[in-house]
Nucleic acid binder design. Structure first.
Lengths: 161, 161
DNA sequence: ATTCTTGCAAAGCCTTTGCAACTGC
DNA sequence: GCAGTTGCAAAGGCTTTGCAAGAAT
């Protein structure tokens, strides 16, 4: 949420419907999908399947676990969500309408801080070019302790984990 | 395997025994652990639990699945192995005796190409410094198609996935 | 002797899937 | 009405764990 949004011309729902409609064999846009898309793009930035299910249940949106997983997969495929493979659960974040970025992940409070550094992409492009490696994408997480957690624990330890 | 080894003063086994001996409550060095350490540091560079079990079985080393997982955890804790959280299975690689590095991961043949780029660490340090974030480590994977696989498929597609 | 480790099988956790009922188009 | 979707519960894949037997110090 810390980065400026990218200009988009369609709503997430419109983009998803377009995705569904243009599959080799057209897929359907259901009530459950509509609710999920609306819910996800109204607030969440980073979440996993469990958190989403819990939050939706709290807000009275009834979608089964199976459907949630199936819809998340479609949203990723449609380019609306990005998968973040961190820890035991797959996390998701908005892709559509957000710029590419990487994350600082606090190991104490689990917070994710987004950042952008064009230099990193440049270095990656250079490396891949040297190796004749065709880039599809990258994953970069920096693990550590965020400023607040650091303050809270009184800077006791300065060693690396 | 592509990067030069770092000078180390102890054998992996010696370092592991030291780790075990210096725990709050001393842990024991067993025959199974000895065989695993010898096996892992005699050849493997990247592997997951299943591959290790299979390879050891092929070579007549009998260690149960549970013990393999338990020992891998200790080897990581001891600083002998590094965990690579990529895909559904946890992968491991040598940590002790190897320099820090990142990976290009071929999505076709699963090969991992190691590379080192001090600039990346520098950028990460800068970002963390700005955010008052205390770094514990980072994970960087670049997904894509390696030169050989690219050649094999005849450069048909140049689009990104 | 004591206490940690092993192996087995069972359980755990996250995610996927088979299938009958249902629903968007 | 056809073809894709849902929900349930069961299965899957990887990893962890309880426990009794065994081994290291």
């Amino acid at each position: 949420m810390s980065l400026p949004a990218v200009a988009v011309t369609q709503t997430p729902e419109a983009k998803f419907r377009e995705y569904l409609a243009t599959r080799a064999r057209a897929q359907r846009f259901t009530e459950q999908q509509r609710e999920m898309v609306a819910y996800i793009f109204s607030q969440h930035s980073h979440f996993d399947a469990e958190e989403l299910l819990d939050a939706m249940k709290r807000d009275g949106i009834r979608v089964s676990r199976a459907t949630a997983y199936r819809t998340l997969a479609k949203l990723v495929d449609a380019g609306l969500l990005r998968r973040l493979e961190i820890g035991p659960r797959t996390h998701y974040e908005h892709d559509y309408g957000y710029p590419q970025h990487d994350h600082l992940v606090c190991t104490r409070c689990k917070k994710m801080i987004e950042f952008q550094r064009p230099e990193i992409d440049q270095v990656i492009r250079d490396v891949c070019s040297e190796h004749l490696f065709q880039i599809a994408g990258h994953t970069l997480f920096v693990r550590g302790v965020c400023a607040e957690c650091n303050r809270a624990r009184g800077n006791r330890r300065l060693d690396l984990v």
